[in-house]
Simulated scan of single mutants.
Amino acid sequence: MARGKRQDVWEFFGDLLKEHREGAGLSQGELGGRVFVSGAYIGLFEQGIRKPQLDVAKRIDEVLQTGGIFERTWRKLIDKSPYASYFHAVAELEAVATKICEFAPTVVPGLMQTGAYARAVTLAVHPFAADAYVEEKVTSRLDRAQILQGTTRPEYWVILHENAILTPVGGPAAMAEQLDHIAALIRNRWALVTVLPREAGAHAHMTGTLKLMEFEDQPPTAYTETEFSGTLLDDPAVVKQAQRTYDLLRVATLSPEASLALIESAAEDYRRCASTT
């Protein structure tokens, strides 16, 4: 589903919330205080800019005595999401983060993927999927990436393991395009990318991806993902540990200049390979 349509359905949630809140005679601040978020957050919910977590939707039901309408509406809207259930909240948080730090050990992060690369990754995981399913996954991934080009784009730091550069996902031509895209993000100063070389050996995060997100008006979060599931972490002690892990990874990477040179050199190698096949 396109970004505009996704926004429209959450605006419906916001309109419903405003109607019930005003019917209960509560200000945004008063409702926020009772469901343990700020009044400003309630305002963002009502505008469809932010999407509440399920536990917040449940508390709204309890305070406004709606018989569960916000939980049911939340679940219906989540069912329409193109993302896996464990990733939906992460995609929503990315859109309001002021800083995102990622470590990608094997695959280029979704926010940096080109259409051809995303299509190859999707088909590798879902080889029997219908074309419509594949295209929905690719479109949703490209839609997410729009946050890197907006006027309020987050600081975007990425550590790529060299394996993600050397694995020819989608073939040489697709990889040349993908690496050219990463280089363009770097040169446009939309991303700061460093490469963890294979020669570094054992490193601080040996399994799965790691994502850290910071926000203007809420505590930072961490997200880890393996092949079949992901976990969003908000416990301050755990997030602090994840941040330390990312710091350890970063000190083992090549410099930004050396990383860009490696990425551009690999792109050229893939391009030569594609021209001879």
Results as ranks from 00 to 15, higher is better:
Glu268Leu: 14
Leu160Asn: 05
Glu19Pro: 00
Ser265Phe: 02
Arg198Val: 09
Thr122Asn: 01
Trp190Asp: 15
Gly14Trp: 00
Thr231Arg: 10
Phe103Cys: 07
Leu232Glu: 05
Asp235Lys: 15
Arg250Gln: 09
Asp55Ile: 10
Arg198Ala: 10
Ser85Cys: 04
Gln218Thr: 07
Arg153Trp: 00
Leu77Thr: 08
Ala261Gln: 11
Glu22Tyr: 00
Ala200Lys: 06
Met112Leu: 15
Val195His: 01
Leu232Trp: 00
His181Phe: 10
Pro52Val: 08
Tyr41Trp: 07
Thr194Asp: 06
Leu192Glu: 12
Gly43His: 05
Arg250Lys: 13
Tyr156Gln: 14
Ser38Asn: 04
Gly110Gln: 03
Ala261Pro: 05
Trp74Ala: 14
Pro172Ala: 09
Leu111Lys: 04
Gly23Asp: 02
Ala124Thr: 07
Ser265Val: 04
Ala132Asn: 13
Leu233Asn: 03
Glu71Asp: 07
Asp131Phe: 01
Ala184Asn: 10
His20Asn: 09
Gln65Ser: 14
Ile186Met: 15
Ala274Lys: 03
Val107Ala: 07
Leu249Gly: 08
Ala84Val: 04
Thr231Trp: 01
Tyr246Asn: 13
Gln218Trp: 00
Leu111Asp: 03
Glu214Ala: 14
Val56Thr: 15
Val138Ser: 05
Glu46Pro: 11
Met175Tyr: 00
Glu155Tyr: 02
Ile147Ala: 09
Val238Phe: 03
Pro109Lys: 03
Phe103His: 01
Ala258His: 08
Lys76Glu: 12
Glu136His: 01
Arg144Asp: 07
Glu102Gln: 14
Thr114Ser: 09
Glu162Asp: 08
Arg272Cys: 11
Val35Asn: 10
Tyr246Cys: 14
Arg34Glu: 09
Ala222Thr: 03
Lys51Asp: 03
Ile100Tyr: 00
Val238Ile: 11
Gly67Ser: 09
Arg21Pro: 05
Arg119Met: 04
Ile69His: 02
Ala120Pro: 06
Ala183Pro: 07
Val9Arg: 13
Thr152Cys: 07
Ala132Val: 13
Pro105Met: 08
Glu46Tyr: 02
Thr151Tyr: 01
Met206Ala: 15
Glu19Val: 06
Val35Gly: 12
Glu227Ala: 15
Leu111Gln: 03
Phe228Cys: 11
Arg198Phe: 01
Lys58Ser: 10
Lys99Cys: 09
Glu135Trp: 00
Ala118Val: 06
Val63Ile: 14
Ser265Arg: 14
Asn188His: 10
Ala2Thr: 11
Pro256Ala: 08
Val239Met: 07
Leu148Gln: 08
Leu254Pro: 08
Val195Met: 07
Ile78Arg: 12
Ile159Ser: 10
Pro256His: 02
Tyr133Asn: 09
Thr66Pro: 13
Gly230Lys: 04
Asn163Ala: 14
Ile100Glu: 05
Arg75Asn: 11
Lys18Ser: 06
Phe12Lys: 14
Ala274Asn: 05
Thr231His: 08
Asp217Cys: 09
Val239His: 03
Val107Gly: 07
Gln47Gly: 08
Asn163Tyr: 01
